[in-house]
Amino acid sequence: MRNIFTAFLLISLLFLQTLEAQRSPKRATPRGAQGATSTSKSAGKFTALSQQHIEKAINLLGIKLGQTLAEARETVEKNGGEIIWLGSRDPNFTESIRNLQRASKIDYFEYAAHSTKNLNKKYVSHTPYSREDVVIKLTVYPKSAGNLKDPNNLIIYKAEISLGFQPSRNEVIYDKVNYVDYTYEDFHAVMEKNNYKLYQNQGAYLSYNKNGAKSLDIGNLKVSGGTWKRDNIRTAPSNKLTSMSAFFPKYAHSLLQTKENGVDQVVTYKPLSEMIDKHEGVGAFQTYLKYGNSVVLTLVQIKSEKDPNIFLLNNIGLSYQDANLMADAYNGFYNALYKE
C-alpha cells in the first residue's frame, strides 16, 4: 500500500512540473484552435470564442457533479446537444467485469457532452464538432453492480474542459488572422461574474471555488504568470485531488487488490479516507473535503504582438472535482466490480 501512495506522490510531482512549464513566461508555440483545420494552408474558418461559449463551458452546459448521467443527458439534449459514450463506437458494446477489473478500458466510464449534435453518427470523439461546439469530458462511476451503462446507475464525479483562444499558426501565416486580444484577466473576470472565486494560487496551478470565501488578488494578470503573486499556502489539496482522480477507475483494482506469490487474493476494502489519513497524517482527508470542491485551472499564454509586456491567453484547461465524490467513486467501483 505504501508503494501505491508513493506512486501517487511521484505522479503528482510530475503533474506539477508539467503545469509549471506551461505557466513559464517564455512564449509558447501557438496551438491549433479547437475546430480549426490542421492542413498546410488553413481554410480561414477561425472565429474567436464568444462570451456565451465561454460561460456555457465553465458552467458545464448546466451539468452538475453528482448528477446521474441520465439527468445530465436530459439537460443537454433539451438545449440541442448530446452526450456520447467514449467506450466504443458501438453503443451496444459491453465489456466483461473481469476485463474492467484489469483496467483494460478506462474510457468505459467516460462520456463527452456536446452543446451541438454531430450529423456523422459513426464519429465518436471528446473533441469539438466545430468551433461553435462546447464539449465537456465527463467521468462517471457506477452506483451499484449490474448494468454499467445504465445512465441512471452512473454518477458524474469529474468534468474536464479545454478551450483554445488563439488561431493556429497556419491561419496567422497564410490567412493573416490576428491573434485575439484576450488575456487571463478577461477570463478571470468571467469566472468572477459566474460566482467562481479564486482561492488558491500556488506556483503551477490555480484553484477556483464557486461561491467561495475569497477572491485572491494575484496582481497584474496581463503579465507573465511567473510574476503573479502567490497564495502563501503549504498544501495543495485541490490539485492533489486532480492527480488522484486520474486513478479512477483505472487503478482502483491496484489500490484494493492484494497478491501472494503472484496470485490474486481476496480484495480487502479500506475506505479512501482511512488510506489517505494513514499515508498523509490524521485529518488529511478532511483537508481534501474542505478544498476539494474546486476547479483546477491550467493555462498557456503567448506574448502579444502589439505589446510584449502583455501576455495573451492561448489555451486553458479546467478540471472540476469534489473530494466527497472521489470517495463515493472509490466506493462505487469497489461495490460494482470487486465486492464479492
Rank of each mutant, 00 (worst) to 15 (best):
A28S: 07
S38D: 10
G212C: 02
I218G: 12
T258R: 01
L198N: 07
W85T: 02
D322E: 11
V190L: 14
S254K: 09
A57F: 06
W228A: 07
K240G: 00
I316V: 05
A28H: 09
Q286R: 12
G81I: 14
G81S: 13
S273M: 05
A36Y: 09
V295F: 05
Y269Q: 01
A72V: 03
D107Y: 10
L69P: 00
L216N: 03
L289T: 08
L10A: 11
S12N: 01
S243F: 14
K222L: 12
S40G: 03
S319Y: 03
N335W: 00
G283V: 05
I106D: 13
S254I: 10
S104I: 07
N194H: 14
E95Y: 11
I161Q: 10
T75C: 14
P91S: 01
R169N: 11
N324L: 10
S168A: 15
V266R: 07
A21V: 07
N293H: 10
K197M: 11
S245W: 03
K339D: 05
K229R: 15
E77C: 13
L313F: 03
Y338M: 04
R23A: 07
L272N: 00
D277R: 01
S238T: 11
N194L: 11
G212A: 02
K105C: 08
Q34C: 07
T116A: 08
A21Y: 08
L148Y: 10
T47Y: 11
N170R: 13
V263N: 02
T29R: 10
I276N: 00
R73G: 14
E71S: 15
A36I: 06
D186Q: 10
F46Y: 11
Y182C: 10
S207A: 15
V180Q: 14
I218Q: 12
T268H: 09
Q286H: 11
I4L: 12
K303D: 08
G292H: 00
G146D: 11
Q257P: 02
K56C: 13
F93K: 07
R31Q: 08
S50P: 05
F311D: 03
G226F: 04
Y208C: 08
Y141P: 11
Y182T: 12
T298Q: 09
Y111M: 06
S115W: 05
Y269V: 01
G35N: 04
L312N: 04
I276Q: 00
L148D: 07
A323P: 03
Q34K: 09
M275T: 01
Y251H: 13
Y157A: 01
Q22F: 12
K250N: 04
L100K: 10
N92C: 03
K222A: 12
M191G: 06
